[in-house]
Write a protein that binds this DNA or RNA. Sequence first.
DNA 1: GCATTTTTCCCGAATTTTCGGACAAAACTT
DNA 2: AAGTTTTGTCCGAAAATTCGGGAAAAATGC
Lengths: 199, 199
Amino acid sequence: MYKRVLIIEDDAVLRTSIEQTLELQNLEPIPTNGFTQARRLIRSNFRGVILSDIQMPDHDGFDVLRFAQSCDPELPVVLLTGHSDVPTAMRAVRDGAYEYLEKPCDPQRMVDVLHRALAYRHLALENRAMREELDDTQPLDDIGTLAERLEVYEKQIIEQELSDAGGKVATAADRLGIPRNTLYDRMKKLRLVAKAFRR
Amino acid sequence: MYKRVLIIEDDAVLRTSIEQTLELQNLEPIPTNGFTQARRLIRSNFRGVILSDIQMPDHDGFDVLRFAQSCDPELPVVLLTGHSDVPTAMRAVRDGAYEYLEKPCDPQRMVDVLHRALAYRHLALENRAMREELDDTQPLDDIGTLAERLEVYEKQIIEQELSDAGGKVATAADRLGIPRNTLYDRMKKLRLVAKAFRR
DNA sequence: GCATTTTTCCCGAATTTTCGGACAAAACTT
DNA sequence: AAGTTTTGTCCGAAAATTCGGGAAAAATGC
């Protein structure tokens, strides 16, 4: 499970306090003092979540939220808010923030929320990775004759074995249980050259 | 995105009120008056989340939570709690509840939380489905001669086409771009019988 | 630069696969 | 129940693939 929490908080005291709380709960805080510092860490494949103060001198929590959402709509942003700003925070939640926490907040509450956000993030990225893998294997349907469809697989298998053997046709043929010459025959038909697999 | 929310609430007035709130937000409430009634709807592939009162005459929210978790640890359970029970609810969250809502709660807050829970649920089930699909395509490695490995794929392709054609060998052969007799030849070699694909 | 390995191609025979024709049995129309 | 379609099987010739031997070209090692 993911553990990284990108903290965006200008108040050094509060930031350190949060850091300690998270460390005690076996999370990995990444402290930053504002949007500018955090910005370069926010990307679509960030394996963690964001915990940002909503009121800050240079940029506010909404800037963080907007930027994070633009990088990845499935990157959870938890907002820290003063009591007076609760209505604002609730609106932020409707705008895509994952959750808000009222300052000062119960540490246990904070880690509960962050754990949920991390679980969500984990699922979202795992999902994305699997989707990509599936896309690779999907386009093997519908069209073409049986022999044509099989050629796709044959090509994949031979490429795999050739790649494992570092382009050595002899060993690849061995692992495939066929004579060298036969593999050359197949390679010619599939327009494969051993050179492409040298390492 | 999923919309179903299984409501477990003994107070008919509150239940109806929640129902209306959810319907207005384009969600699909499934009202029940208690654990007994809800139990048969809770299963590992339930495409929605649970919203349960924590204090009820027959069984309490913990029974619901325990049962739901035993069916599926990734099935979110949101608990409704009176003000005095907040500490209990927070403990429940640590025990696996997705979130708690303090009664009487802001309707907007409720739908926000439910939406998050539904999004999580959606990801969790999608994930599971993809994992199964990937497991199917995985065992295509390492062992056997080239011809043997290809036979696995050939079998899959023919099975697929035969299944689509409802066991009609002629149409399957057509879709595969080979004569009927050839398909019979292949089927014999692969020990496939058309009967198994009739519907 | 020279020896050795490896790639790549060609040949031809043995084997396998393809595919059309034919046909009995089974299944379905009407 | 007769007629039509579909299934499943066998045959045999044409086509494709396999595979061992061989040999030139290219790459690699020393």
